[in-house]
């Protein structure tokens, strides 16, 4: 299935990716080919097949609801470009 420019623009928005005008044609072409490749799966008969939930059929473990992690905020914030007073700084969200 060939994607259109507007399809790719809407996918890029959902993925929170800026795509510039000079890149869009390349994405339309290459993503369309990838979608063509995966579209082939539509022909496979999967009637009555249960979708795989885990490669080894394991179930998720539960653990006791206890505090196990200590505070590493200062260490973790070393990797942020802008922090202040222990918070992450972002552009203004509320007027």
């Amino acid at each position: 299935m060939a994607l259109t420019i507007s399809d790719v623009e809407s996918i890029a928005h959902l993925a929170r990716l800026e795509v510039s005008d000079d890149e869009i044609a390349d994405y339309v072409e290459k993503l369309s080919r990838i979608i063509d490749l995966v579209d082939a799966l539509g022909k496979l008969d999967t009637t009555d097949v249960v979708p795989m939930a885990h490669p080894l059929d394991m179930s998720q473990r539960l653990r006791a609801d206890e505090v196990t992690e200590t505070d590493h905020r200062d260490a973790y914030q070393q990797n942020s470009a802008t922090v202040g007073q222990g918070f992450y700084r972002v552009p203004k969200v509320l007027d």
């Binding site: 929170r16 795509v19 994405y27």
Partner: peptide, 23 residues
């Protein structure tokens, strides 16, 4: 901030896979 950071930080193949997955 999200869109520009991701545009500049990721290469073409990673963006294609993110978009394929999103689709």
């Amino acid at each position: 901030l999200y869109k520009l950071s991701r545009k500049e930080g990721f290469g073409a193949e990673v963006k294609r896979r993110i978009m394929t997955g999103t689709y």
